[in-house]
């Protein structure tokens, strides 16, 4: 009996946790199919009506796509996220190689200083970052949106751990085989850290896709607006926010992420377990 009861209890607890995580998403999606009045009417008391649109309407989506340039924002975000992933991977992998495989004076100090920048909250860096990026003339450009984050201390840390786990003999064998640093990096190290690279890529993509504050500050022009900013700003300041449309936008913005995770979740959980860190 106890043998049966234990997994049952465990399953119930897991279901409860799942429900807690899942409910807000369900609520957002369901409300995106309700008219504005319906949303407020169903909030209390919490019942299945709160989470299910009984008479679903597509009006929110129609207005979203007609009134705002959401496709443009999605495209911008995709470009920024993809670019940020690519640049982060290149930069962090090269830095991790240098810090783990090339002996030089002060390597430890360099690493510590880089990690220290990890401790600063984004908000505290916002103004100086804005000054630097504008100073570079990257104000209102997609490059300006991604550039402050590509030198990621988290990425460096994750990859440094992975690089260190590779046996040093591999590199020695490659040197005997006649490989230089570039060849070792590309042909010996990188193919053996695919999972950590993928993990970092995914975490970076997520971070970039969902970022709001920095894009809001640096990319004001409507042409280069990103998705999260676009969703938050679709109503004009004088009107009441149109919640149905906001929820429709949030739903549209989340779909690509869900797809990506379903595709890559195997590697993602592997990588997280390997690094022993939660992103």
């Amino acid at each position: 009996m106890t043998a049966l009861r234990k997994p049952l209890a465990l399953t119930l607890v897991l279901l409860l946790i799942l429900a807690c995580f899942f409910a807000p998403f369900l609520w957002v999606v369901s409300n995106s199919f309700k008219p504005q009045l319906g949303i407020f009417a169903d909030v209390t008391p919490i019942s299945w009506r709160t989470f299910l649109p009984l008479e679903p309407v597509l009006e929110n989506y129609r207005t979203l796509f007609e009134r705002t340039n959401i496709l443009r924002a999605l495209l911008n975000t995709a470009i920024v996220s993809a670019g940020q992933v690519a640049l982060t991977l290149v930069l962090c992998a090269m830095a991790a190689y240098a810090l783990t495989r090339i002996r030089f004076r002060g390597a430890k100090a360099v690493f510590v200083v880089i990690l220290l920048t990890f401790l600063l909250p984004v908000e505290a860096m916002l103004v100086p970052l804005f000054q630097v990026v504008s100073g570079l003339g990257l104000n209102n450009t997609l490059l300006g949106v991604m550039i402050p984050w590509i030198a990621s201390p988290f990425g460096l840390f994750l990859l440094k751990q992975a690089f260190e786990e590779l046996p040093r003999d591999l590199e020695d064998a490659a040197r005997i085989d006649g490989a230089g640093h570039v060849r070792i990096f590309v042909s010996v190290i990188l193919p053996n850290v695919k999972v950590p690279l993928l993990t970092l890529g995914l975490v970076t993509f997520l971070f970039s896709w969902n970022s709001f504050l920095w894009p809001l500050v640096i990319a004001q022009s409507p042409d280069i607006q990103l998705i999260q900013v676009a969703i938050a700003q679709q109503g004009s300041p004088t009107q009441l926010p149109n919640w149905g449309e906001t929820f429709a936008g949030a739903t549209v913005a989340t779909l690509p992420l869900i797809l990506l995770f379903l595709l890559l979740q195997k590697y993602f959980t592997q990588g997280m377990a390997m690094s022993g860190i939660k992103g």
Binding site: D169, D172, A173, I176, G178, N192
Partner: peptide, 20 residues
């Protein structure tokens, strides 16, 4: 000189084969 210029080959204790 670099290892490749020395006309040597080396076999390691833990094989050091390229896993991929």
């Amino acid at each position: 000189l670099e290892p490749r210029e020395r006309d040597i080959a080396m076999v390691f204790q833990n094989y050091a084969l390229y896993p991929h």
